[in-house]
Design a protein around this nucleic acid. Structure first.
Lengths: 196, 196, 196, 196
DNA sequence: GATGAATGAGTGTTCATTCAT
DNA sequence: GATGAATGAACACTCATTCAT
């Protein structure tokens, strides 16, 4: 007795989800090049063959991860944009970025690693480019916010803002303990989100 | 008649230098895992065998690179420490860091990539750790400078300073063009190197 | 539809058996160091990759061979021990040893070759040691038999017995033809298995 | 000022002797295949290049060793043949063989190892054949001795004699300690060198 | 004679990917 | 859909041998 179409779909969804999650774990632990397909399949508790039924290969798995990372970022940005004042919007970005690093430093680390992939790595540079482009989109939205905030030179301001957040994120992910997160957030807020 | 010892030493030095330089180029272009020994040897115009006469393997080549990177950083820090006032010292660090990224964005990128290696990459994590430790040493020296500068909470200040520099460096290396370097340097100077 | 577990096991058994047998042939023909993995795989009609699915490497293949050789010897010893009189027991050892060399002189040669591996061959000395230890075990069992036989100095007697058998085996394996096997067996029996 | 011809020859002789001796040591320690030319040259304290001036390669070095081994054996046989009675002759062979193993068990081991080289090892089988042929020559001479001794079936007797000596040698070289050498020699003498 | 830098063919090993079942 | 046996290309590394000096 064959499964119904819906049930089949659900099985597919679950299997795919399972594989993707396992791949993320293994990539984050061992890095893309050290993660073998066998590792991922074993982690997911499926056969290598099945993995290839759902994903064309290792690269596509990474592509999925990058895609969902980008969606995550865009989600934060959209939620921010929906807020009333530019000050609140920027604060939301600060919180989103810092909390994310704080709770998942290894994930931040992984994507930064990917983002800094050598440009001529023909296999992966595509993904670092996608991430960088997302950063650029984020930058544009921030510019708009700073413009509304009424600061002079909103582009420069946005650049400073991004630099500050990335610098702090890097430091947090490198030394995850003892980082005075609250203070830093407040400092960022004072420096960037208010006009005297 | 065999070559004299000195002559031989010179030949060895040159060959080694040549190989190291080529390895750097290839690593930076293609990344560690995509750079094959054959690539490096070809780039150096040398046989694979000779490469192994001078280096035990791929890893040692990377080790050499990391070592010289660390020495480069320590050199900047020592030159800074030798200056008269904490203000000048910090300014020297700013200049050293920013100019370095500006002139060799790919090299900065490469080492940041290495630094963000997943921790369980047994092969490379050793090197990311070495780089992180160097960053920690740098941090300690900076604390001292801020202390002399007479700011309250010099540790927090040093943390902010490092975050700022790393953030900016990351942005510069990602978008090497159009970055308002002079302005940023001046801003950093105003933010961190003077006491009102 | 995947193969059933049992079917898969059978396939694995067959493949493994095939590889092991081919490895034995190639090792015996060309020697361990001259037998390349490619040789063995080709002989087995199998890809190099598959070989590594079943064996961790060249050394493990040899390990398997040594293991089964030891089991072969212990089998003869056990069968001997199960016999009624010491005289019969020793006769069984003589027959087992001589017949084995006679029917597979090259195999005897191979293991003797392995047993005489230079002690500092870090790779192989482990296996020569295992074989020597088996010989020592055999020696102990023989001592017991001679003791039951009621000879004076059973240890010395066992030593002579082993020396004689090894000497004869070496000669047979070196000059496999024309060796007066029956006579020699009878002589050994008269010399060692009876008490006047 | 060029060296005189004689002096030159002497230098050559010494250098060659030095290399040959070192090669023997290294071969005996690590085995032929694990001994690299670099090892041998280092042990001899000369450059790889010089080694190739005197020997065409690794194989020729081994050839030299085998040659001198054969001469050693023939020397014992000639000294034996020069003695007055067959009984004394055989005793001399016993002493020569056993004492040799006793004093240099590793060397015996090495040559037995070489002798048991797989027949299809195209590189080394030539040498194992040379050694086996020498053993055959020795066998012929022994036959003559046994004939003179007046035993029936001197060929069979010689075969037994060789088997006994090889068996004992193998045991001594494998368990160099505690072997009751004197007793064994006496037993051999009683078994083979006297007629009742 | 003497050196050791340089070569390159050969080998063991890994792993993404395919496909018969 | 699901499996895992099987493949083979790619790679790191070794070492006997050559030759310019």
């Amino acid at each position: 007795m064959p499964r119904s179409k819906e049930e089949n779909d659900r099985v597919r969804q679950l299997a795919q989800e399972n594989i993707r999650t396992s791949a993320m774990q293994v990539f984050i632990e061992k890095g893309y090049y050290n993660a073998s397909i066998a590792d991922i399949a074993k982690r997911a508790g499926v056969s290598k063959g099945l993995l290839y039924n759902y994903y064309k290969g290792k690269e596509e798995l990474l592509g999925d991860m990058v895609q969902s990372r980008i969606e995550e970022i865009e989600d934060v940005m959209q939620k921010a944009a929906a807020l009333g004042t530019p000050s609140e919007q920027l604060k939301h970005i600060i919180d989103g970025a810092i909390d994310n690093v704080l709770h998942h430093p290894k994930i931040y680390r992984f994507y930064l690693h990917l983002q800094t992939q050598p440009e001529e790595d023909l296999l992966l540079s595509r993904y670092s480019q996608m991430l960088n482009e997302e950063m650029a989109r984020q930058f544009q939205l921030q510019c708009e916010m700073f413009r509304k905030l009424g600061v002079p030179d909103p582009e420069i301001r946005s650049l400073h803002f991004s630099s500050a957040i990335h610098g702090i994120s890097l430091m947090i992910s490198t030394y995850p303990e003892h980082y005075p997160v609250r203070q830093v957030k407040e400092q960022l807020f004072r420096d960037f989100c208010v006009t005297e």
